[in-house]
Design a protein around this nucleic acid. Structure first.
Length: 242
DNA sequence: ACTACGATTACCT
DNA sequence: GGTAATCGTAGTG
């Protein structure tokens, strides 16, 4: 059956600290079930928005009608509008906290032709590269706001199959040292490096390194300089750009 | 009722 | 690199 989702992530997965969850969502599969068809993609870029001490977070001003679903328990969906577009967040932390992970980009897996129709047949790379674009490609709107991702029949997440050899998000370079990822359900480690930077498009707390992405993946948003880990010296210090 | 704003995108030079 | 598009929400009078 097309709605089969034995790999679906359960509430336990979402009960990680927000910054950890933002990293661990990389490589997971975002699935949209639309008109009997599965549309899906690898999550390749995320941003964390915290419950406390984060002036850029929509929850910073307190609970409002607009952001109420951000205060639902971990594993729910928070969708908001920005200009003419929508953005999709995975809620984290216990109910009432107000933290979430913005999904900024996915790499298409299933249903790319349908996504292309929903996106007015733009180029393949522009299908799901960016938070507004991926929502248009997967037909995610405020109608789905507040959905339980662990239970809903329209949108959910599945465990990454990066432990398998056949399918995984692409990286532009040969994977090097494996990066240990905390709180994985299995003991395996992901075969890519995780890049980290300030969050895009915000003014407040723009220097906080709470954006995460799969290093070298082509579907990561922004310019090329946003697609790779910034170079670091032997002590792990950030190297100045030149 | 009126105004200002934005976790973006597409299109311009 | 810059900026218009365009609208729900929230703050103000």
């Amino acid at each position: 059956m097309a709605t089969e989702h034995g790999n679906r992530l359960t509430s336990v997965f979402f009960q990680q600290p927000t910054l950890t969850l933002a990293r661990n969502l990389l490589g997971c599969r975002l699935v949209r079930f639309l008109n009997g068809e599965r549309l899906s993609g690898w999550i390749v870029e995320t941003e964390a928005y915290l419950a406390d001490g984060d002036p850029a977070s929509h929850s910073a001003a307190g609970l409002r009608r607009k952001n109420r679903s951000m205060f639902l328990p971990a594993g729910h969906l928070y969708v908001y509008c920005i200009h003419t577009h929508h953005c999709l967040n995975v809620v984290s932390e216990p109910e009432g906290q107000g933290a979430a992970v913005l999904i900024r980009a996915v790499e298409p897996i299933e249903g790319a032709s349908r996504m292309s129709l929903l996106r007015s047949e733009c180029g393949p790379r522009e299908l799901t590269r960016g938070p507004g674009r991926l929502c248009q490609a997967l037909q995610v709107t405020r109608q789905l706001d507040g959905l339980d991702l662990t239970d809903g029949q329209q949108l959910w997440l599945e465990a990454g199959s990066w432990h398998a050899s056949d399918a995984r998000p692409r990286v532009a370079h040969r994977p090097r040292q494996q990066l240990a990822v905390e709180s994985r359900p299995a003991a395996a480690t992901a075969p890519w490096r995780i890049g980290c930077s300030g969050r895009i498009g915000i003014r407040q707390a723009a220097d906080q390194p709470w954006r995460f992405f799969i290093d070298g993946n082509r579907y990561v948003s922004g310019r090329a300089s946003c697609h790779s880990r910034p170079p670091r010296d032997q002590l792990g210090r950030l190297q100045p750009p030149r």
